[in-house]
Design a protein around this nucleic acid. Sequence first.
DNA 1: ATGGTCGTAGGACGA
Length: 264
Amino acid sequence: MKIATWNINGIKARIDNLRQWMSDFQPDILCLQEIKSVDEAFPRLELEALGYHVETHGQKGFNGVAILSRQKPEDVIRDLPGEDEDEQARFIEASFSVPSGVVRVASIYLPNGNPADDPVKYPYKLRWMERLRRHAESRLLLEEPLVLAGDYNVIPEPHDCYDPAAWATDALFLPRTRAAFRAIENLGLTDAVRATTDATKLYTFWDYQAGAWQKNNGIRIDHLLLSPEASDRLLSTSIEKQVRAWEKPSDHVPVVGYFDFEKR
DNA sequence: ATGGTCGTAGGACGA
């Protein structure tokens, strides 16, 4: 089973790229971020025509997440618990039947947090990360395969970044950001890409500006975090880097985990 | 080389 995450940076501008990649790659479950669309304007019919169920959590203009799946999802949840006043659409979660039981998958768009000295934005990012940590803690009690997939806006380690010095004061790489990410991992979650390769200079995002793609000035900020039950069934991962060279690309590329959820 | 790129929406802002 192929479970993928992709920040598409606007569904309206990316629908052709999205359909092309889905037709080529045939993901079983695809988590999207930054759909930048209200639910009513999301091109549901075009994606259903490819054979996918569509669950969205959109908002006007910014943010917005979705889960596309071959199978019909169950237990769809549309908000990260812990802050009732939060109106930003950054979280959707669903569960799916598999031969060995169930797999639960979340599509996460973690706040960017810049500028890091902003009195609102960076504290919101840290609060959101603590809410995610608590939610993950509660989900881990279920002892089920769990895949927390998305744009974390976190560069975990210096080698996940082309120039660590250039990112030293950025909200994606500050020590407090990295510590909050480790606190989530330290619950017992596995970074799927790191678990399946020793390669360095693996990136999932290249800025549109300053020829970042051409110079390979990238960062690794899109992650699949796995519960032990999901990690046990992980076979390999793929970063679909070729997609960044297509016409009208997103600044992020898909990240994929391959799993075996057949019975033992 | 002191700028530079996108997307949404239809202006200003987020990344």
